[in-house]
């Protein structure tokens, strides 16, 4: 366990977060554009296109319109994509091509501060993007308030979990092209089978259990409940699942990155 140095972790991770925020603000317009336009495209395609074929989907025994069904999933997917891509491609570029981490490690920042700062930043990007998507969907009248606002803390928690998974791949991937593999094996199946575009209850029994193991399923659960104003105590399990995932995998991310960068 030589590579797990939790004692190196300090408040200074916020300085790494700050560096990324400075860069983000320079091109904020481009950064805002994707979460602004993407949900409109999805709502147009699925809402107008597919709604003609699928009228109602059953959610907790009540039929809801298809557009209302998928709208919260769009936020959940945004949360996953933003943190995961930030802590894979973007972190890899900073680590490998720009040697930003190397320069930081000549200052009082530890490697652990840097990794924590990167993951924290990934989660922040999830929150910003989720807030924009939430705003857009609200304009279409598809969100119940005030419960809808609860997707913001969910986006932070989900961002931490997906970012941590991304960071583990960053610690392990030999080249930037190899990210195709975790995307194909992990991200795409979640995008499709986490109760995003159809209820998991339509899947065969074994696949339902498998879907329950996917973190996105839980983020979708939470977002949908908050969007539709159907909060219940059962949601605590989803919160617990995502939190546990982050807490258990965060040390793994620290270990693989230390193994990769310190020799």
């Amino acid at each position: 366990m030589d590579n797990l140095r939790i004692d190196n972790l300090s408040w200074r991770f916020i300085l790494v977060w700050n560096r990324n925020m400075v860069v983000y603000r320079k091109i904020w317009f481009v950064n805002f554009l994707v979460p602004l336009l993407e949900p409109i495209m999805y709502l147009a395609a699925f809402g107008i296109g597919l709604s003609a074929l699928i009228h109602k989907v059953s959610y907790q025994g009540t039929p809801v319109s298809y557009v209302l069904y998928i709208a919260p999933a769009l936020v959940a997917i945004t949360i996953m994509y933003n943190a995961f891509f930030e802590n894979t491609y973007a972190s890899f570029v900073r680590m490998y091509y720009q040697k930003t981490f190397d320069a930081m490690m000549t200052t009082p920042l530890s490697l652990e501060d840097i990794i924590a700062g990167e993951i924290f930043w990934g989660a922040t990007k999830s929150v910003i993007a989720a807030a924009i998507v939430l705003g857009v969907i609200t304009c279409f009248g598809l969100v119940s308030f005030p419960s809808g606002l609860l997707v913001l803390p969910v986006s932070f928690l989900g961002g931490l979990a997906f970012g941590t998974v991304g960071m583990i791949f960053t610690g392990l991937t030999p080249t930037i092209d190899m990210y195709n593999l975790p995307i194909f094996l992990f991200i795409t199946p979640m995008f499709l089978f986490s109760g995003t575009f159809f209820p998991t209850s339509t899947l065969p029994g074994w696949a339902q259990k498998l879907a329950l193991a996917l973190p996105l399923t839980h983020v979708v659960n939470l977002c949908r409940a908050f969007f539709l104003g159907k909060t219940s105590l059962g949601l605590a399990w989803s919160v617990l699942y995502i939190t546990a995932m982050f807490i258990l995998l965060f040390p793994v991310a620290l270990i693989v990155m230390r193994k990769r960068l310190i020799s």
């Binding site: 200074r12 300085l15 700050n18 560096r19 400075v22 860069v23 320079k26 720009q98 040697k99 930003t100 190397d102 320069a103 930081m104 200052t107 009082p108 920042l109």
Partner: peptide, 18 residues
């Protein structure tokens, strides 16, 4: 390993924050 995402001045300012 200057930070290519930042300007000349920002490179120094952000580094000072570290």
């Amino acid at each position: 390993n200057l930070d290519p995402d930042l300007t000349v001045l920002q490179n120094l300012e952000v580094f000072a924050r570290y």
